[in-house]
Nucleic acid binder design. Structure first.
Length: 237
DNA sequence: TAGCTCTTACTAACTGCAAC
DNA sequence: GTTGCAGTTAGTAAGAGCTA
């Protein structure tokens, strides 16, 4: 028999908590911005409490959203960018499919063959073996693909690393850069990884809710995205 | 009484501006 | 163009207060 769920002891209703967490991961807003937005609606809560909510519910939200994501495309686009965390250089590995949906993000200290293998292994846990892998000219990718038998059937295409050539994944880095800038840099690896995970899942959820589709489709997609978020937020709480 | 929330203070990074 | 400085704004930590 499953144990009784932990009683809900938060002072604020779930709807407010889920909205605050959603705002933080969906838009380029600081905790203090969200504090102000909520205050405008008559909700008095400190920025520190909002940070606690993000810390507490973020990992569960990521897990639940991941579970609900549809099967992704079979062509992977990979790239890595340098991010500084507390002044130390780290590499943010990112993979998107041919539709621009984020498959995974992973922060690692290096960008050598071992790091590439770790990232591929992470991707293979939740995704099927791809038919093609698009990367830049970094040698770690080809070395890792050679060493991983699961990937031998995939076609490896190397392109020059410019925003134009590997556009899908390069574009996917942009919101992250914007958030990083707004947050004045990430402060710790674990917090950054948690944030980036949920940020990626939230972006996927709202992927077709902007200008690439007709207004009618957009509204329908937005409705579906909000419904999913609400369901997932209830589970995470 | 456990744990949620708030207050306060700290450090780090960014921004704007003047001086060179 | 660059450097240095001050002001601003961000995330974070610790501890006290509050509530179910």
């Amino acid at each position: 028999m499953p144990a009784d769920p932990k009683p809900y002891r938060h002072r604020f209703p779930k709807s407010i908590i889920q909205h605050a967490v959603w705002l933080y991961h969906r838009f380029t807003l600081s905790y203090r911005d969200i504090e102000e937005l909520l205050f405008q609606r008559g909700i008095q809560v400190s920025h520190e409490t909002i940070r606690d909510w993000c810390d507490k519910f973020g990992p569960n939200l990521t897990k639940e959203l991941k579970k609900r994501e549809p099967q992704r495309g079979s062509r992977w686009h990979l790239d890595e960018v340098c991010v500084k965390i507390k002044g130390v250089k780290q590499w943010l590995w990112r993979a998107v499919d041919e539709h621009g949906a984020v498959l995974d993000v992973l922060l690692q200290e290096h960008r050598d063959t071992e790091a590439a293998k770790t990232f591929f292994a992470t991707l293979l846990i939740t995704n099927e073996v791809p038919t093609a892998i698009h990367t830049d000219k970094l040698g770690s990718y080809s070395a890792a693909i050679r060493e991983l038998p699961e990937l031998h059937g995939a076609e490896h295409r190397e392109v020059i690393s410019t925003a134009r050539c590997n556009n899908l994944v390069e574009q996917s880095h942009r919101p992250t850069r914007s958030q990083e800038r707004s947050q004045k840099g990430f402060k710790s690896i674990s917090r950054a990884q948690n944030f980036l995970d949920l940020h990626a899942r939230t972006s996927n959820l709202h992927q077709h809710t902007r200008t690439t589709v007709t207004a009618e489709t957009r509204r329908s997609n937005q409705k579906a995205a909000f419904q999913t978020w609400n369901e997932v937020a209830l589970l995470a709480a």
